[in-house]
Every structure is written in structure tokens, then in C-alpha cells.
Simulated scan of single mutants.
Amino acid sequence: MSHISVLLHETVDALLGGRNTGIYVDGTFGRGGHTRLLLSKLDEHSRVYAFDKDPQALAVAAQLEQEDPRFTIIHASFADIKTALNQRGVETVDGVMADLGVSSPQLDQAERGFSFMKDGPLDMRMDNSQGLTAAQWLVEVDEEHLANIIFQYGEERYSRRIAKAIKAAGYIESTSQLAEIVKVAHPKWEKNKHAATRTFQAIRIEINKELEDVHAFLPEALDMLHNGGRLAVISFHSLEDRIIKQFIQKESTLAEDDGWGLPQKPKETRRLKKIDRVRASEEEVKQNPRSRSAWLRVAERINFKGE
């Protein structure tokens, strides 16, 4: 299955907010769907910088660099957005977007080890040029920590039983082997869901430090935006969406007074204004079932003091 960009037009249109010029960032290039549409709507003076860790995504991006001089790809996590852009002389930008989660090519290629639908080596690394594979990590992690990861990142109620079975199995070489171990250990599966879905999600999130990267990315992206600049982020599961929702809520809420009880004007601490929250349309879900769980949250920078 080829990669279909989720909430494509909604995200790019929200990011631009009616503009057609500026400096923009795609924090998760993937196969470039959002970036290409963004470039098509921008004038010749604009710039787009994109980030990705996946070597295959970087190869696609390198080709786009050759085709369009307005585009630059950066081999790094979007968590490093501020440092990477500052090193290139970019201090502020007009918009930052990110499409979180795993791309269709990553899921569909058995050798990447993300999915139990196709048997392959148990890898799960988005940047498979460095770090531990899932198979190596499962050998090193202790049972209690593994159970906590499966419970926290997979929201799996049977995490302790599953962790015990995984550790008892020794070295697990393939995705199908891990899926079968979880399936046998799991006493009650959800309707229309494989028994290993939540466990695979949890291990993938841990291997790639996905939630840690989101926590690091959001404040850095906000720091890069000048007044009127927009942040547009697509998430696919409740853990990611909760982080984005709480961040926007915190940054768009006026701070309380200092508690002295004296009448005074509240200190203006807001840095964001909520713009929108969007779900995929019924038509998009029909064409691309993976968009069913997607949420797009959009916010706009206010009270930037650097201008």
C-alpha cells in the first residue's frame, strides 16, 4: 500500500491561514505528501525545511531537494527543530506541521518489523541506522519495566501477563513470533483488534522515544514561531493527542494571579490561540482507513516579544 497523507489539505490550509509566502517546517517528512502540497501553494521566495529519521524517507526527500531549491531536508528528529534551524541561520518561522506516528511504507514493509501483519525481523526502529532493535531491547529490558511500558504506552490491562510471557521466551527474532507469544498470553482480545496491537504499539513508542520527542518538539516549535505563525499537528492515538491538547491548553490559558488577593491585572502569559480541531471526513476514512483515528490540532502564536 502506498502512503496516503492523512488530512492533507486540511493541514496545509490551516498551516498557511490564507498566506502564500514565508518559511515553513514539516517536522515529519515521511514520503513528502504534506511538504509537496505546501510547496505548491507557496511563492518562489518561500522556504520549507523538513525533518525525518527514516533513511528511506530521506532518500525521497533528497530527490525533492534536487527538484525544488526552496526545499531542505534535515536528518534529525523533529525534537531538535530549534537547534537544527538555528544552525542554518533560521531564527523564526511562519508555520510548523507534524504528522505523528508510523507511515504506511514503514508498516507495510515486513523488513522494518513494525507490524505483525507481515512476518519480518523484529526491528521497529524509525532510524534503522542506529540504536537497539526491538528484539535486542526485549532481551535487555527487565520484566517489570517491560510490563510498565506495555501498560503505559499500550494501555494494555494484561501487561504483566504479556511481559512475563515475552521474557520467558528468550530471544524473539520475528514479528510473527512476538505476535504469537502475546496472543497466547492474552486472555481476552478486543473485537476487531489483534491481541498484539497494543503491545506492538507500546514497544514501538519506547524504541523510538516517540512521546519523549513530542514533549521536546512542542515547546521548541512554539519558540520558533513568530506572531501569527501556526502550529498544526496530526496525532493517531490518545497518548499523543493528550500531550498536544494539554500543551495547547496550557499555552492558551491566562495564568492565575499570585495569590495575594489584591485586585490586579492578570499577567499576560498566553503564547498560543486555539484555531481548530479536525477529524478526517467519512470520505477520507473510506479511502484510507488509517485516517479513522487521526486528530489535527491547530494553534496560532500570539504575544511574541522578539519582533
Rank of each mutant, 00 (worst) to 15 (best):
D257T: 13
E284M: 05
Q249E: 14
I244N: 03
I207S: 02
F247A: 07
G259R: 02
D223E: 15
G229P: 07
V285Q: 13
L222C: 10
S238D: 10
K286L: 14
K273T: 10
L225F: 09
V214K: 01
E283G: 05
L254V: 14
A232H: 06
T269N: 14
H226F: 11
K245Q: 05
L262M: 11
R279M: 11
A232E: 03
L211T: 02
R230Q: 12
Q246M: 13
A221C: 08
G229S: 12
P219D: 10
S235T: 14
T253N: 10
H215G: 01
P266R: 11
N208D: 08
L254W: 07
S235L: 02
S252I: 13
L218H: 05
T269A: 01
A221I: 06
E284I: 02
M224I: 06
P219G: 12
S238N: 11
D276G: 13
P219A: 07
G261V: 09
D241V: 00
R270M: 14
E268Q: 15
K209F: 11
E210T: 02
Q264G: 08
I244A: 01
Q246T: 10
R270H: 10
T269G: 10
V233L: 12
L211Q: 04
I243W: 08
S238F: 02
L272S: 08
S235V: 01
K209T: 04
F236A: 00
E251T: 06
P266H: 04
R279H: 10
I248M: 13
F247D: 03
T253M: 07
T269Q: 11
F247Q: 08
E210L: 02
R230C: 05
M224Q: 00
K245N: 12
L222I: 07
L225Y: 09
H237A: 03
S281F: 08
K250Y: 12
M224S: 01
W260L: 15
E256N: 12
V278R: 10
F247C: 12
N208F: 03
S235W: 01
S281K: 10
L239V: 03
D258W: 00
S238K: 07
L211Y: 11
K250T: 14
H215N: 13
N227Q: 12
G261A: 12
I234R: 01
S281M: 09
D223V: 01
A280E: 04
I275N: 04
L272V: 05
V214W: 03
P219H: 07
L272H: 04
N227W: 09
R271V: 05
K245T: 12
E282D: 15
L239K: 00
G261P: 09
A255S: 15
D213M: 06
R277F: 06
S281R: 04
I207T: 04
G261Y: 07
T253I: 06
V214M: 10
K245R: 14
K265R: 14
K265C: 10
V285G: 06
I207F: 06
A216F: 05
D258T: 07
A221S: 13
Q249N: 13
L218Q: 01
S281N: 10
P219T: 02
K273R: 15
G259Q: 03
W260T: 13
I243R: 05
